[in-house]
Amino acid sequence: MAVGIINYGDYRHLPDCLDSIKRQTMRADRVIVLDNHSRADEIGPIGNAYPEVQILAMQDNLGYSGGANRIVREADGYDHVMLLNPDVVLGPRHLEELVGVMVSAPGVGSVGGKLLLGDSQTDSGPSGDAPRILDSTGHLIFRSRRVIDRGHGELDVGQYDKPEEVFSICGAAVLYRRSMLDDIQIDGEYFDEDFFAYKEDVDTCWRAQLLGWGSRYNPAAIAYHLRGWKRRDDRRRVPWLRKYHSFKNHSLMMIKNELPALLRRDCLPILWLGVRAMVYVALIEPALLKAVLDLKKYLPRARYKRGIIMKRCRASTEQMGRWFV
């Protein structure tokens, strides 16, 4: 099994993430850190402190999608590839619990555990006696096609302690089956590089569902995600670039993966969400109109990818329709 971390400037939390990998009850055969827009003065000391870790220092910023694709290619020959954000700290049995699901369920292509919110504003990281606040237990997708992290912000009182199928897994900490990644790739891309970052995890799992691969949630695999702005879910604190890519990628994801029958079934909630989004952009953040205008240059590639996905689709309308709640 290979573990890959996609880093962009987060040298503060990266050592804690690497330490948590070293503490695993199941040893990773290979650990790769892809450092986007790499700074030698920052990544050099980390490489010296962790000589067993392979450092891929990128002069450019490949984004999450490009970085993840590079890691998957580097990890050729491994049956399972774990992708992590640098601000994730794994519980000691995390890898063992996720791999156990893969071994027992050959139709599962991605597995995630229970992500708890850590406090990124403290040097010590998540506190053992702090209230356990959920970050993600997999993704929920609604008939409007709005996607949320299931349970985000809720106090963890055992309401998500049942292992179960989910629509998709949060890309901050997810284990992929290599054969699934190879099956769903398009022109050598496992993650759509037109997305750059944000919602590429949902897009990948949506495509996998269409091709017959499931996603599974295992609450026994615990991790802390030290994300910042989303802890309060305040859109005013969200970086503009994140909002830009999220807005753009939501449309690309639907263009590529929607089944016509489900689009007809859910056209009203989809349209209502679209109208609300455009009103928000027009009145509150007109700068986001750039995301709408930029869709034009991505449309030909999105339609091309849709053609490939639909030709290879193995899931029925009923199988896919159950996910849109």
Score class of each variant (00 low, 15 high):
residue 39 R to G: 05
residue 39 R to I: 06
residue 39 R to C: 08
residue 39 R to F: 04
residue 39 R to V: 08
residue 39 R to Q: 08
residue 39 R to T: 05
residue 40 A to L: 15
residue 42 E to R: 10
residue 42 E to M: 12
residue 42 E to K: 10
residue 42 E to A: 08
residue 42 E to P: 14
residue 42 E to F: 02
residue 43 I to R: 06
residue 43 I to T: 04
residue 43 I to W: 03
residue 43 I to C: 05
residue 44 G to I: 15
residue 44 G to F: 11
residue 44 G to W: 10
residue 44 G to T: 15
residue 45 P to W: 01
residue 45 P to K: 09
residue 45 P to H: 05
residue 45 P to Y: 04
residue 45 P to Q: 12
residue 45 P to I: 10
residue 45 P to V: 08
residue 45 P to T: 12
residue 46 I to N: 09
residue 46 I to Y: 09
residue 46 I to C: 10
residue 47 G to T: 14
residue 47 G to R: 15
residue 47 G to V: 14
residue 48 N to T: 15
residue 48 N to E: 15
residue 48 N to F: 10
residue 48 N to Q: 15
residue 49 A to Q: 14
residue 49 A to N: 13
residue 50 Y to I: 13
residue 50 Y to H: 10
residue 50 Y to W: 07
residue 50 Y to D: 13
residue 50 Y to C: 12
residue 51 P to V: 06
residue 51 P to Q: 09
residue 51 P to G: 08
residue 51 P to S: 07
residue 52 E to M: 13
residue 52 E to R: 11
residue 52 E to A: 11
residue 52 E to D: 14
residue 53 V to I: 05
residue 53 V to P: 10
residue 54 Q to T: 13
residue 54 Q to R: 14
residue 54 Q to M: 13
residue 54 Q to G: 04
residue 55 I to T: 06
residue 55 I to W: 05
residue 55 I to H: 04
residue 55 I to N: 02
residue 55 I to C: 06
residue 55 I to Q: 05
residue 56 L to A: 04
residue 56 L to H: 04
residue 56 L to S: 07
residue 56 L to Y: 01
residue 57 A to V: 14
residue 57 A to N: 14
residue 57 A to H: 12
residue 57 A to K: 15
residue 58 M to K: 09
residue 58 M to G: 04
residue 58 M to N: 06
residue 58 M to W: 08
residue 59 Q to Y: 09
residue 59 Q to K: 13
residue 59 Q to T: 13
residue 59 Q to L: 14
residue 60 D to R: 10
residue 60 D to G: 00
residue 61 N to W: 05
residue 61 N to S: 07
residue 61 N to R: 07
residue 62 L to E: 09
residue 62 L to V: 05
residue 63 G to D: 14
residue 63 G to V: 06
residue 63 G to K: 11
residue 64 Y to Q: 12
residue 64 Y to H: 10
residue 64 Y to R: 11
residue 64 Y to S: 10
residue 64 Y to A: 08
residue 65 S to T: 12
residue 65 S to R: 08
residue 65 S to C: 14
residue 65 S to W: 07
residue 66 G to F: 04
residue 66 G to N: 00
residue 66 G to K: 02
residue 67 G to T: 02
residue 67 G to P: 04
residue 68 A to S: 09
residue 68 A to K: 00
residue 68 A to R: 00
residue 69 N to K: 01
residue 69 N to D: 09
residue 69 N to W: 00
residue 69 N to E: 05
residue 69 N to Y: 00
residue 70 R to H: 03
residue 70 R to Q: 05
residue 70 R to L: 03
residue 70 R to I: 03
residue 70 R to Y: 01
residue 71 I to E: 00
residue 72 V to W: 02
residue 72 V to Q: 03
residue 72 V to N: 02
residue 73 R to L: 05
residue 73 R to M: 07
residue 73 R to K: 06
residue 74 E to Y: 00
residue 74 E to N: 04
residue 74 E to S: 03
residue 75 A to D: 03
residue 75 A to Y: 00
residue 75 A to F: 00
residue 75 A to I: 03
residue 75 A to V: 02
residue 75 A to T: 01
residue 75 A to E: 02
residue 75 A to L: 01
